[in-house]
Design a protein around this nucleic acid. Structure first.
Length: 555
RNA sequence: GUCUCCGUAGCUCAGCUGGAUAGAGCAAUGCCCUUCUAAGGCAUCGGUCGCAGGUUCGAAUCCUGCCGGGGACGCCA
């Protein structure tokens, strides 16, 4: 438990004791006392609404309850400085600021680990995200999913979960056949031959590039081979090159997966049959119209789903069911899937499948990422993999910059729709909020460099000299960091890290303008402030790392 | 038509399990660089929290119904 949490716990304990003492309820230990941080500093450091919550139980008006609590509150020898009753019955608690010095010491001592906690208790969590088909370039939606997914993983790991990040490769099914046929057509075109693209072909530039590469290497020899061999050639090479490209693009986006899981492997190792058999044995499968169905309506789905089509092939769902059972078999107790909103309707059937296999449906948690609407020249910019005019993730990064893109996508809640004005992002990139945080970091780095030149050294010896209003504001923000991470992990809301970064940077900028750090006439205070801003530097660096944004030493 | 997500300042978005006069950035206006990076700070302007009911001591937050927008409703993936 960090210093801030200790103080909060102490307050909660004291309140609980006072409530018991005042005999407002029979058993105060059963109460879940909550503290909030008032927006207005005039209302103290912490506030509790417990007096209002107890109106029913205690059968008294809230202010009377509040007064009874205060009368019985033991503050002697604690960090509680004073307690006021305000408004309808809020308890406004002001604490001594001494404990905040511990925050600086903790940040300095823990360094890169500052902010981490054991809140997740080592729970084995698997996060599957992006998982785009290897048939084209990653686009805007994938970029948002990658930003949110990667940041969520970082946050979970920092909060003490055992996280594995995974990419499910859809390397089986129709779309791969289309890939092969599309590639063959582009291959012929690359060799100057007439060739028509298949009707459902992939028209992306990436296929053209890959075809050219292959044509340069293999020439016309491939085209003389029998159809089956040609198909296998284009399928295999297309997949490999598409996958290589995906991996490179994601690595350049600062996203690294622990596992790349092949759908085809499920066909080869019999896991699909195992899952199917289990569903059958559990009585959730039936035959109709020449197809094999999963009675998902038993588990709340709005219609039953086909598992094996009339032609004997599997639907997309079938290997996906086997895949999810395999995840559970690998020991994960929580499966978090990050899906685009266009797959929203798929959730009930997947949860149904998990339940039908005998597991708790809540083992699977799906975080839906809403669509990104791109605007260009003041108009909606439609993207389509099919027609090939998509704005790719790569292009976006080239135009806007990686830090800005990652920040932009993670700063809003995933379930909110998002408008991305490309012109604005490009033309006013210097006004992107990400620079605000990075600038704070660079400013600190600059001060620290000059401090060294002037012979100062950060010191925790005189932290009691920190007491100016802006210093306290910064200290409080730094102290919040571990709690912010734990909450963001618990609620799967990595965007809270971005919000926190803005707040911390704002607190620092404000402090910077109000107080001078380097002061040759006051060595003690200078070195205490150096310790303070070093704590901010550490916190900013750790927070930015969580969302995959760089912390520049200079700007 | 059914399901689902969203609707908060001119724009883009926060608002934690309901809590005290609803916040930030951008835009607009006015100040602040002989002082550690002005990609900054301070201040002002700006909102019937889509609408109407309901639950509650208390609702932007929970429930219902409308209105508006996105998405999904395949033996595609």
């Amino acid at each position: 438990m960090n210093a801030v949490e200790q103080v909060q716990q102490m307050i909660k304990d004291a309140l609980q004791q006072a409530i018991q003492q005042a005999q407002l309820v029979e058993d105060a230990s059963a109460l879940n006392i909550q503290l909030s941080q008032p927006k207005d500093k005039a209302n103290g450091d912490y506030a509790s609404n417990v007096a209002m919550q107890l109106t029913k139980l205690a059968q008294k008006p809230p202010r009377a309850i509040a007064e009874a609590i205060v009368a019985n509150l033991a503050t002697e020898g604690t960090d509680i400085e004073k307690v006021d009753i305000a408004g309808p019955g809020f308890l406004n608690i002001t604490v001594r600021k001494d404990f905040l010095a511990d925050v600086v010491e903790a940040a300095l001592a823990q360094g890169e680990k500052f902010g981490q906690s054991t809140a997740g208790a080592g729970e084995k969590v698997q996060v599957e995200f992006v998982s785009a088909n290897p048939t084209g370039d990653l686009h805007l939606g994938h970029a948002r999913g990658a930003s949110v997914g990667d940041s969520l993983c970082n946050v979970l790991a920092a909060a003490g979960y055992d996280v594995s990040r995974e990419y499910y490769i859809n390397d089986a099914g129709n779309q791969i056949n289309n890939l092969a046929y599309s590639l063959e057509a582009r291959y012929k075109q690359a060799l100057g031959q007439e060739a028509e693209m298949p009707e459902d072909g992939y028209n992306g530039q990436d296929i053209i590039d890959i075809a050219k590469k292959l044509a340069d290497e293999f020439g016309t020899t491939i085209l003389d081979k029998p159809e089956e061999e040609r198909f296998a050639f284009f399928r295999e090479h297309g997949l490999k090159l598409e996958l290589d490209k995906l991996k490179t693009d994601l690595a350049n986006f600062r996203v690294d997966f622990d596992v790349w899981y092949s759908e085809t492997s499920l066909y080869n190792n019999g896991k699909i049959d195992v899952a199917l058999t289990k569903l059958k044995e559990n009585g959730h499968v039936f035959e109709e119209d020449g197809a094999t169905w999963f009675r998902s309506t038993t588990f709340g789905d709005d219609k039953d789903r086909v598992l094996i089509k009339k032609d004997g092939s599997f639907t997309y769902l079938t290997p996906d069911i086997a895949y999810h059972e395999d995840k559970i078999n690998r020991g994960f107790t929580k499966l978090i899937n990050i899906w685009g909103a266009d797959h929203h309707g798929y959730i009930p059937r997947m949860k149904a499948a998990i339940e039908a296999l005998g597991y708790n449906r809540d083992t699977l948690e799906v975080e839906v990422i809403q669509m990104v609407q791109l605007y260009k020249d003041g108009e909606k910019f439609k993207m389509s993999k099919r027609t090939g005019n998509a704005v790719t993730m790569r292009e976006l990064v080239e135009e806007v910059g990686l830090d800005a893109v990652r920040y932009f996508f993670v700063k809003t809640a995933g379930d909110s729709h998002m408008d991305f004005d490309l012109d604005l992002a490009v033309s006013q990139s210097n006004e992107n909020p990400v620079y605000y945080a990075q600038y704070a970091y660079a400013r600190i780095a600059s001060i620290l460099r000059q401090a060294t030149e002037q012979g100062f050294e950060a010191s925790t010896a005189n932290l009691d000299l920190l007491g100016a209003e802006k210093e306290i504001d910064v200290l409080k923000k730094v102290g919040d960091f571990p709690t912010v991470i734990a909450e963001a992990a618990k609620h799967r809301t990595p965007h809270r890290i971005a919000t926190y970064i803005q707040e911390l940077a704002a607190a620092f900028h404000s402090f910077y303008n109000a107080e001078k750090v380097l002061d040759a006439t006051n060595k003690e205070r200078t070195e205490a402030r150096l310790a303070l801003i070093t704590a901010v530097r550490i916190t900013l660096a750790n927070a930015l790392r969580l969302i995959g944004v760089a912390a520049p030493e200079k700007m």
